[in-house]
Simulated scan of single mutants.
Amino acid sequence: MKYELQMIKQGVGGSIINISSVSGFRPQPDNIAYVAAKHGVVGMTKVAALENGKYSIRVNSVAPGAIDTPMLRGALEQFNLNEEDYAP
């Protein structure tokens, strides 16, 4: 984001989209580092939006939920969870 904010010097505004996770809003147990990182992205996005709106720069984040991938299946197996345990 530091480099994207060079838009200020250009003076034409723009948009920045950060990627967070549903864990930034609804944490899961036994995943403290990931949850903390995603909360950080949410907070950073909010501050950047407040600070840069005056330059016509929008800052938003996208927070996808669980997507059925091999990585998710591995995590569910590692924590002895099934799909029903993880469902919202």
Rank of each mutant, 00 (worst) to 15 (best):
L72N: 08
G65R: 07
A87R: 15
G11S: 13
Q28N: 12
P64W: 12
Q10R: 14
P64D: 07
M44L: 15
G53T: 00
A49W: 00
E77S: 14
I19N: 12
S56W: 12
G11C: 09
G43E: 04
H39R: 14
G74N: 13
S21T: 02
A66K: 15
N80K: 15
M7E: 05
Q6W: 09
V59C: 07
K46V: 06
K54V: 06
K38N: 01
P29T: 09
A36V: 07
A37E: 02
Q78H: 11
S20A: 15
D30H: 14
G13T: 04
G11M: 10
P29M: 04
A66P: 09
E84N: 11
Y55S: 05
E4N: 10
V59P: 00
A37F: 01
N82V: 07
I16P: 04
K9P: 03
Q28T: 13
D68F: 04
P29F: 03
M1Q: 14
S15P: 00
S21P: 04
A75K: 10
Q10S: 11
Q28L: 12
Q10D: 14
Y55K: 03
V47Y: 05
Y3K: 13
S23V: 07
S23M: 10
M44W: 06
V22N: 03
R73H: 05
S61G: 04
F25T: 14
Y55T: 00
D85W: 02
I16L: 14
V47I: 13
A33R: 08
I16W: 06
Q10I: 11
R58D: 01
G24Q: 00
G65T: 03
I8Y: 08
A33Y: 09
V62H: 03
G13Q: 10
R26C: 04
V62E: 08
S23E: 11
P64Y: 12
